[in-house]
């Protein structure tokens, strides 16, 4: 059985204790999307600001476990400043790391070149399948917001 140290890496606990980019953005101009994990009741709200095809700000509010909160926090750092296609590539890469491939376009070979940085710390989650939904909650909610911004 995988050990808890695979799950609760120090960088994850750091983002859990001190989440980055928490708060709200005025809507409009920002887009808001809400995500729920129906299994555990976790709720997350993603505020997305896109200017001229580039994600200029993201804020997160809501509540959840250490995995969902830290994943959301690291996600904001990974996507702010990126173009929308770059953000979609990061989302695909992250969900790929979570063993999820969905129909959000074809995973291009370029995706493997996308660096996940701190987010790599979350790959231990795959060994705890029940928690994958926690890790991907913010990402799916971000996708909803991206779709609305299109």
């Amino acid at each position: 059985m995988p050990g808890l140290e695979d799950l609760y890496r120090e960088i994850i606990l750091d983002h859990y204790r001190s989440p980055r980019n928490r708060g709200e953005l005025p809507t409009p101009p920002a887009i808001m999307a809400e995500g729920h994990n129906p299994l555990c009741g976790d709720e997350i709200t993603v505020y997305l600001q896109v200017d001229e095809g580039r994600v200029t700000d993201v804020k997160i509010s809501g509540q959840g476990c250490s995995i969902s909160q830290s994943s959301a926090s690291m996600m904001t750092q990974a996507v702010i400043g990126k173009t929308v296609p770059e953000v979609r590539a990061i989302v695909r890469r992250f969900k790929g790391m979570m063993s999820i491939e969905d129909g959000d376009g074809d995973a291009s070979a370029d995706d493997t070149a996308v660096s996940l940085g701190d987010l790599e710390a979350l790959q231990g989650v795959v060994k705890f399948p029940v928690r994958i939904k926690c890790a991907t909650l913010a990402w799916n909610t971000l996708l909803q917001a991206l779709d609305e911004s299109a």
Binding site: C40, G41, G64
Partner: peptide, 28 residues
């Protein structure tokens, strides 16, 4: 601690508890 994390840590010791809203969201 979030109940999910509590449940995860307890599982490391083979202690099985439910974590979540228990199908009673209005009560939560």
């Amino acid at each position: 601690l979030h109940p999910h994390d509590v449940s995860q840590v307890l599982d490391e010791r083979n202690v099985c508890v439910r974590a979540g809203h228990h199908c009673a969201k209005p009560l939560m």
